[in-house]
Every structure is written in C-alpha cells, then in structure tokens.
Amino acid sequence: DLSALRVEEVQNVINAMQKILECPICLELIKEPVSTKCDHIFCKFCMLKLLNQKKGPSQCPLCKNDITKRSLQESTRFSQLVEELLKIICAFQLDTGLEYANSYNFAKKENNSPEHLKDEVSIIQSMGYRNRAKRLLQSEPENPSLQETSLSVQLSNLGTVRTLRTKQRIQPQRTSVYIELGSDSSEDTVNKATYCSVGDQELLQITPQGTRDEISLDSAKKAACEFSETDVTNTEHHQPSNNDLNTTEKRAAERHPEKYQGSSVSNLHVEPCGTNTHASSLQHENSSLLLTKDRMNVEKAEF
C-alpha cells in the first residue's frame, strides 16, 4: 500500500496539472479547448457565450486583445492532455480508494470495455495498479461463464418462442383441414349439385314461356288486323247491294208514291245487322237523297 506522504505528493502534482488545464472563465477543466490569436485557451462554450454578448469583436479576458469567431481554432494537443489527466485522476481514485477533492464528473469518461483496460497499462506502473489488474484478471474467467449461461438462457427462450410460433402455425392448418373434411358430406355435395341443376332447368323453362307469350301476342295482333281488313271488305261488298236497293226503291216510288213515303220513313230507323257505323252513315245519306228525289217527283206529278 501507498504511504500517506506519497499520496499527498501525487495529489499535489495532480492539482498543479489541473490548474494549468483549467479554463480562466469557468475555472474547470477545459472541455473542447479553443485557442485565440494571443495563444490563450478557453472552453469553446465559454468563448461563444462571451462573443454573443456583444456585437462585433470582444476582448480576451487575459490580455484584452480583440477576439472574433473566425480567429478561434481548435487545439487537439490540449484536448489530449486533458484526457490523460482524467485517466490519471481515475487511476488515483481506484488505487487509494479516496475521492479526489477537486474531482469532476468523471463517470462519463469511464469505460469498462476490454480495449480501455489494455490502455490503462500505459498509465502508471504502481503496486495498487498491479493489484487491481490481478483482481480484474481473476474476475475475467467468471465473466465468460456468466456470458455462457446468459447465452444458453437466451437460446432456450428463443427455442420456446420458436416452438410456440410453430404450434400457432400448425393449429390453424389443422382446424382448416378439419373444417374441410367435416363441413360438407358427400350427400350434401350431391344435393347441392341437384339443386343447381334444377335451378338451371327452371331458368331454361322460364325463358321459352316468355317467348311463347310474345308469339301469342303477335298472333293476336295479326288476327285483329285481319279482322279489321275483313270488316272493310264487308262494308265494300254491302255498298253495291245498297245501291241495288236504292234503284228498286226509286222504281217503286215512281209507281206508288204514297205507299213509299211511309216505308221510307220506317227504313230510316232500321239498321242492317253486321255493318259498322260507317255503313250506317252512308245509308242515312242515301235515304235522305231518296226522300228529296221522291218529293221532286211528287211535285212534278201535281203540276
């Protein structure tokens, strides 16, 4: 173990290094160091905050020279020094078990990766560091076993998940096959086929009936047209017969005018059967003409 005197000496050296690497504005270890034209180094955030307070150039807090945003430059070497100082402080805390008085939040800088452990060898070769390295080497064999167990647990979990997924996939297939086998029997399929065939026959029977009705309507229309044509021909046949009657009536009127007047009046009210309204109107006109002729003949006879 380190003596108290040596611990104090190391602590004083760390404090001196820390004062050199402090920012003059925030009085902390410089984060993202930036250098000016006057070779003074500050935190990048502190300098941008200072420049944004005034429009135009501002003055350096140490030498009062003008500073602009374009004049600022990043210093990589200074950032490396800060990183190495942080590593020294971490090693000091691990070796002594004491917390550094002016320690900052170094938890963000710590890294437990194997590459980081290899890099620590180049920091300080001390008894405390050696003991700590031995402890780490002793704890390393235990870690692979834990990793193997965790991997086995994960693989077993994956296997159970896969088996569950396969079961879920197989179950719908089985149910679907069961439904297909038990849903419709052979008799049901035959009945469905016969039902479809009967429906098709009914459709075939319905369509000819409609065509037959249309044919019957067409035949009825044709018969009505033929009947009207026969009526017209009958009226045409009746007209010459009426003319013959008129000639006979004229002759009778010349011989017996008194008797014919009474008979002509009675004939006005008689309509021949089986004739249309057109034929009756023609008869009325003929009878009126005959009456006028008879009157003329009677007057001539009187004179």
Score class of each variant (00 low, 15 high):
Ser126Cys: 11
Thr36Leu: 08
Glu187Trp: 00
Asn15Met: 04
Gly182Val: 09
Ala223Arg: 02
Leu29Ile: 03
Ser219Gly: 11
Val298Ile: 06
Glu202Asn: 07
Gln209Met: 00
Val10Pro: 14
Lys134Gly: 14
Asn143Thr: 05
Cys225Leu: 09
Ala220Thr: 09
Thr149Pro: 08
Gln171Ser: 07
Asp213Ile: 00
Phe106Ile: 08
Arg212Phe: 01
Gln147Leu: 02
Val265Pro: 09
Ser156Ile: 01
Leu137Ala: 04
Lys31Gly: 11
Thr275Trp: 00
Ser280Leu: 03
Phe42Glu: 13
Gln138Met: 04
Leu51Gly: 07
Ile124Ser: 02
Thr163Phe: 00
Asn12Gly: 02
Leu98Ser: 02
Glu115Asp: 13
Glu22Leu: 04
Gly210Ser: 07
Leu29Gln: 09
Asp200Arg: 12
Ile123Phe: 07
Ile20Lys: 05
Ile89Met: 14
Gln18Trp: 04
Asp231His: 05
Ser280Phe: 00
Glu226Ala: 02
Glu229Val: 01
Val265Leu: 06
Asn234Arg: 01
Ile30Phe: 09
Glu258Cys: 01
Asp231Met: 14
Ile89Trp: 06
Pro208Phe: 01
Gln209Leu: 01
Val34Cys: 06
Asp294Phe: 03
Asp218Trp: 00
Asn276Asp: 06
Asn267Trp: 00
Val161Met: 10
Gln147Thr: 06
Gln93Phe: 07
Glu22Pro: 14
Lys222Pro: 07
Ile20Gly: 03
Thr233Cys: 01
Arg6Trp: 14
Asn65Met: 06
Asp218Tyr: 02
Lys134Asp: 05
Asn143Pro: 06
Asn15Ile: 11
Asn65Ile: 10
Gln209Gly: 01
Arg255Ala: 09
Ser75Met: 02
Leu50Asn: 10
Phe45Ile: 07
Ile89Tyr: 10
Leu5Ile: 09
Ser219Asn: 08
Asp213Ser: 04
Ser35Gln: 12
Leu117Val: 02
Asn246Leu: 03
His116Leu: 01
Asn297Met: 10
Asp39His: 02
Arg174Lys: 10
Ser266Tyr: 01
Ser216Glu: 03
Asn105Tyr: 04
Ala101Gln: 02
Met17Leu: 09
Met296Ile: 08
Gln125Ala: 03
Lys167Arg: 13
Glu83Ala: 08
Tyr104Glu: 05
His269Ser: 03
Glu74Ala: 14
Arg77Val: 12
Ser197Cys: 02
Glu249Thr: 03
Leu245Lys: 06
Val265Arg: 03
Asn297Leu: 05
Thr68Phe: 01
Ser35Ile: 06
Leu136Gln: 07
Glu140Ile: 10
Glu302Lys: 07
Phe227Leu: 10
Cys26Trp: 15
Phe227Gln: 10
Cys60Tyr: 15
Ser150Phe: 02
Pro144Asn: 07
Gln73Thr: 14
Pro61Asn: 10
Ala16Thr: 08
Leu27Pro: 10
Lys192Thr: 14
Phe92Cys: 15
Pro141Tyr: 04
Lys31Cys: 13
Gln11His: 04
Ser35Thr: 10
Glu254Asn: 06
Cys26Tyr: 15
Arg6Cys: 05
Lys118Cys: 01
Gly56Ser: 10
Gly210Val: 05
Pro61Ile: 03
Phe92Lys: 14
Ser75Gly: 13
Ile215Phe: 00
Thr163Lys: 11
Lys19Leu: 03
Cys43Phe: 15
Ala224Asp: 05
Glu187Arg: 03
Lys293Tyr: 04
Ser58Arg: 05
Phe303Val: 10
Thr160Met: 12
Ile89Gln: 11
Arg212Met: 04
Glu254Tyr: 00
Gln138Ile: 06
Asn143Ser: 09
Lys259Phe: 13
Arg135Gly: 05
Asp184Asn: 12
Ala279Thr: 14
Pro141Ile: 04
Arg162Leu: 01
Glu84Asp: 07
Ile20Met: 06
Leu282Phe: 00
Thr230Ala: 03
Thr247Met: 13
Leu85Arg: 13
Arg165Asn: 07
Leu62Trp: 12
Cys46His: 02
Cys60Arg: 15
Glu285Gly: 05
Lys37His: 03
Cys26Arg: 15
Leu164Tyr: 08
Thr68Lys: 13
Gln80Cys: 09
Glu142Asp: 10
Val13Trp: 10
Ser122Phe: 15
Thr36Asn: 02
Leu51Phe: 06
Ile41Lys: 05
Pro33Phe: 12
Leu85Phe: 12
Asn102Trp: 14
Lys64Tyr: 03
Leu137Asp: 07
Gln209Phe: 01
Leu268Gln: 02
Leu81Gln: 03
Gly182Ser: 14
Glu285Pro: 01
Leu72Asp: 12
Lys44Trp: 03
Gln80Glu: 07
Glu84His: 08
Glu83Arg: 13
Cys273Phe: 04
Thr230Val: 04
Met47Cys: 15
Pro208Cys: 05
Ser122Lys: 09
Gly128Phe: 01
Cys273Lys: 15
Cys38Trp: 15
Thr68Pro: 15
Ala252Thr: 04
Glu142Ile: 05
Ile123Thr: 10
Glu28Asp: 10
Asn191Arg: 02
Thr160Ile: 08
Cys26Ser: 15
Ser150Lys: 08
Leu62Pro: 04
Pro240His: 02
Arg165Pro: 15
Pro114Val: 15
Met296Cys: 02
Ser156Lys: 04
Ser263Leu: 02
Thr207Cys: 14
Arg130Phe: 04
Leu158Trp: 01
Ala133Val: 05
Leu268Ala: 06
Pro144Gln: 05
Lys37Gly: 06
Pro114Gly: 11
Asn157Lys: 12
Ala133Asp: 04
His284Tyr: 02
Phe42Tyr: 07
Phe45Cys: 08
Ala16Met: 11
Leu94Ser: 13
Leu282Arg: 05
Asn157Ser: 09
Glu299Ile: 01
Pro144Val: 06
Leu282Tyr: 03
Ile14Ser: 15
Cys38Pro: 14
Tyr129Gly: 14
Ser58Thr: 05
Ile25Asn: 03
Pro272Trp: 00
Arg130Val: 06
Ser79Tyr: 09
Phe42Ser: 05
Glu254Val: 10
Asp39Lys: 15
Lys31Gln: 07
Met296Tyr: 02
Lys259Glu: 11
Glu249Tyr: 01
Leu217Val: 08
Ser103Thr: 09
Gln261Lys: 12
Lys221Phe: 14
Phe42Met: 09
Gln138Lys: 10
Leu164Asn: 14
Tyr195Gly: 14
Thr247Asn: 02
Ile170Met: 01
Thr68Ala: 08
Glu8Pro: 12
Arg174Asp: 11
Gln18Gly: 06
Ile30Leu: 05
Ser264Phe: 03
Ser219Lys: 05
Gly159Cys: 03
Gln138Val: 06
Thr160Asp: 05
Arg70Trp: 06
Tyr260Pro: 06
Glu99Ala: 12
Thr248Cys: 15
Gly56Tyr: 02
Asn191Glu: 14
Leu217Glu: 13
Ala301Thr: 07
Ser145Ala: 04
Thr247Val: 12
Met17Lys: 15
Ala16Glu: 05
Glu32Trp: 07
Lys64Glu: 03
Thr247Tyr: 01
Cys63Val: 15
Lys19Asp: 12
Lys259His: 01
Leu94Cys: 02
Ile206Leu: 05
Ser152Cys: 06
Pro257Trp: 01
Pro141Asp: 12
His284Phe: 06
Ser75Lys: 14
Gln147His: 12
Gly199Asp: 01
Leu98Thr: 10
Leu155Asp: 12
Pro57Gly: 04
Gln201Thr: 14
Lys49Arg: 10
Leu27Asp: 08
Met127Lys: 11
Thr207Ala: 06
Thr230Ile: 01
Arg255Gln: 14
Thr211Ile: 07
Lys293Ile: 00
Leu146Glu: 07
Lys31Thr: 12
Arg70His: 02
Leu245Ala: 12
Lys221Pro: 00
Asp244His: 07
His238Leu: 15
Leu151Ala: 11
His40Met: 10
Ile41Arg: 10
Lys87Tyr: 01
Gln125Cys: 15
Lys87Asp: 10
Cys273Val: 15
Glu254Cys: 13
Cys26Glu: 14
Asn191Cys: 04
Val153Asn: 10
Cys63Ala: 15
Glu74Val: 03
Ser103Gly: 03
Thr160Trp: 14
Asn65Pro: 01
Met17Asn: 15
Leu151Cys: 14
Asp95Thr: 15
Pro144His: 04
Asn131Ser: 12
Leu81Ser: 14
Val265Tyr: 03
Lys37Ser: 01
Thr247Trp: 13
Lys222Trp: 00
Ser79Ile: 12
Glu285Gln: 14
Lys192Gly: 15
Pro61Leu: 06
Ala16Trp: 14
Pro141Leu: 06
Asn157Asp: 09
Asn242Thr: 00
Ala4Asp: 05
Ser122Trp: 15
Gln80Asp: 00
Glu32Cys: 12
Ile41Gln: 09
Lys54Glu: 07
Gly210Leu: 05
Leu21Thr: 06
Ser263Arg: 07
Lys55Phe: 06
Leu86Trp: 03
Ser35Met: 05
Ile14Met: 01
Ile206Lys: 15
Arg251Cys: 08
Leu5Arg: 05
Asn243Tyr: 00
Asn297Ile: 12
Ser197Phe: 04
Ser3Tyr: 07
Ser266Pro: 06
